[in-house]
Amino acid sequence: MLSSADDARYMAAAIALSQRGRGRTGTNPNVGCVIVKKGVIVGRGWTQPGGRPHAEAMALADAGKAARGADIYVTMEPCDHDSERGPTCSRLVIEARPARVIIATLDVDSRTRRHGIDRLGEAGISVSVGILEQEAHRAMAGFFTRMEHGRPHVTLKLALSLDGCIARADGTSKWITGAVARRHAHLERARCDAILVGSGTLEQDQPGLDVRLPGLENRSPQPVVLGEAEPPENWVQISFPEEISGLADTNWLLVEGGAQTAASFLRADMVDRLLLYRAPIIIGGGLPGIADYGLESLDSAHGHWRREDTRDLGEDRLEIYERAA
């Protein structure tokens, strides 16, 4: 019998696997799944590009007959609604006859919510829910944000000097941060469905917004421009931050610049996560990272952000914040 510590360890492995699909699953959640038998992982899976196969289907195919009597760890409740793209995961799990199914979090889709676990229970399979729920929710935040708020999960990324500037007064911004921080920023691009800049950034910098990491070039997100600048071919153009709700197949959106664009998303209360790359330089008289977004008082600025992580990236420092309210 596995302990609660074992359950948490294997669920953490499933959550880690879920990140392999992040930014590639369209409107589907990036789920992870591991199958364990007698203390050995016999199957692994994560949601594939475009949303199919689902993580459970991939892991069950990997495990084969070894799934019978095993424990299945999955980061979200197995789907239980019919689809032309394949059988429900709840049915596939039942057919595999595992001993237990351990689920991190319920689905928020009304077509599946609680139906999946009820179906498993009716088939005589032991079901546990809530193991590392918060961690799984964070790992699949793009799906949850879209389902609950009708828009992608938004990360605002800023590369700043110590005095909060993103460029010199003449607009020069290459490079504020060092090579290690820039590589990390490209990894973040690879984990998103779409990436957005404002018209000013497009016209001045003409950014490619692609992923330039060896082996991840095919993970470049869909480029989007906010504003009136003429976009390059294959870019998407929107006029207001609220229009991100109409971006196709997008759970995760990265906003990269500039100051007015950052302010517009903050003003619209549509930023869920902050990535602040701070370089150990002082510019003085440079362009601020964020323009005025209508803050009424210092008191009203407090309580909105919770620091989740900090790390050194070469000479630079990364700070990650998430919405607190």
Score class of each variant (00 low, 15 high):
Arg307Val: 01
Val225Glu: 08
Leu160Asn: 03
Thr47Val: 06
Arg146Val: 03
Ala139Cys: 12
Val236Arg: 08
Tyr321His: 11
Gly294Glu: 05
Ala229Pro: 09
Pro53Asp: 09
Ala167Thr: 10
Met11Gly: 14
Gly51Leu: 06
Ser18Ile: 08
Asp210Glu: 11
Ser300Cys: 11
Ala70Phe: 12
Leu120Glu: 01
Arg9Thr: 15
Glu56Arg: 07
Ser110Met: 12
Gly215Tyr: 04
Ala59Asn: 10
Ile283Ala: 03
Gly285Val: 07
Asp62Arg: 02
Met11Arg: 12
Ile282Met: 09
Leu162Tyr: 06
Arg20Trp: 02
Arg52Trp: 09
Leu253Ala: 02
Asp62Trp: 04
Gly69His: 02
Gly286Tyr: 11
Ser199Trp: 11
Ser4Ala: 13
Ile238Glu: 12
Gly200Phe: 05
Ala123Gly: 02
Val154Thr: 15
Cys79Arg: 10
Ile41Trp: 03
Val180Gln: 12
Asp71Gln: 14
Gly294His: 08
Ala279Arg: 07
Ala55Leu: 10
Ile72Lys: 02
Ala63Leu: 10
Gly26Met: 03
Val101Glu: 08
Leu275Trp: 07
Leu318Lys: 09
Ala179Thr: 14
Met76Trp: 05
Leu156Arg: 09
Ala167Lys: 06
Ala96Gly: 07
Leu162Val: 15
Val40Gly: 09
Arg24Asp: 00
Arg85Ala: 13
Arg113Lys: 15
Asp292His: 00
